[in-house]
Amino acid sequence: MKKTTTPFYDILGISSATICLVHCLIFPLLTVLPLGLSHNPFIDLLFATIGLFAIFKIIKKSGLLIATILILSMVLIWISVLSEIILDIHLDLIFIGGIGMILGHLLNYKTHKSKNH
């Protein structure tokens, strides 16, 4: 009987990055509707913090390619979030970073899955 392990941090990272990306893509459309919604960059900061926690745990045990993708993606996300909080400038780098985070976590998840089988 094979013992399978669940890479919790990959699932956390994929989920957080996907929810963040959906939030970033759909929320601007919702602000057009007269619902009284306004964008709060601190929600983006929450997603970025969860993602940062996940990649710190992952990059210790991942290969150079996956670590590079995750770190560069996180840097793009943090530049975007901090520029919005500090300078009130919205950068589209968050979309590129979010896609990179999803891809990096998926690659890492597949790598772990193939090693455990």
Rank of each mutant, 00 (worst) to 15 (best):
M1Y: 12
M1L: 13
K2M: 10
K2S: 14
K2D: 12
K2R: 15
K3I: 13
K3S: 11
K3A: 09
T4A: 09
T4H: 14
T5Y: 12
T5A: 12
T6S: 07
P7M: 05
F8I: 09
Y9P: 00
D10F: 01
I11D: 05
L12F: 05
I14H: 00
S16C: 10
S16G: 03
T18M: 04
I19K: 06
L21E: 03
V22F: 13
C24K: 00
I26H: 05
P28H: 10
L30V: 06
L30W: 09
T31F: 05
V32I: 14
V32Y: 10
V32D: 12
L33K: 08
L33Q: 06
L33C: 04
G36A: 12
G36I: 08
L37M: 13
L37G: 06
L37F: 15
H39D: 07
N40V: 09
P41A: 08
F42A: 07
F42D: 06
D44L: 11
D44T: 08
L45D: 03
A48P: 03
T49C: 13
F53G: 05
A54M: 05
A54Y: 02
A54V: 02
I55A: 01
I55M: 10
F56L: 15
K57N: 12
I58E: 02
I59M: 03
I59C: 02
K60H: 07
K61L: 07
L64K: 14
L65S: 11
L65G: 04
L65I: 14
I66S: 03
A67I: 02
T68N: 04
L70D: 00
I71A: 04
I71Q: 00
I71P: 00
L72K: 01
L72H: 03
M74H: 05
V75M: 11
L76V: 04
I77D: 00
W78F: 11
V81L: 07
V81I: 11
S83L: 07
E84D: 13
I85S: 03
I85R: 06
L87R: 12
D88R: 10
H90K: 12
H90N: 08
L91S: 06
L91Y: 10
D92Y: 13
L93P: 00
L93Y: 09
L93M: 10
I94R: 02
I94V: 14
F95C: 04
F95G: 04
F95Q: 04
I96N: 02
G97Q: 04
G98C: 10
G98R: 04
G100W: 03
G100N: 08
M101N: 06
I102T: 09
L103T: 14
G104Y: 04
G104T: 05
G104L: 07
N108G: 09
N108K: 11
Y109P: 04
K110F: 15
T111H: 14
T111L: 15
H112L: 13
H112N: 13
H112P: 00
K113I: 10
K113E: 15
K115W: 12
N116D: 15
N116Q: 15
H117Q: 15
H117G: 14
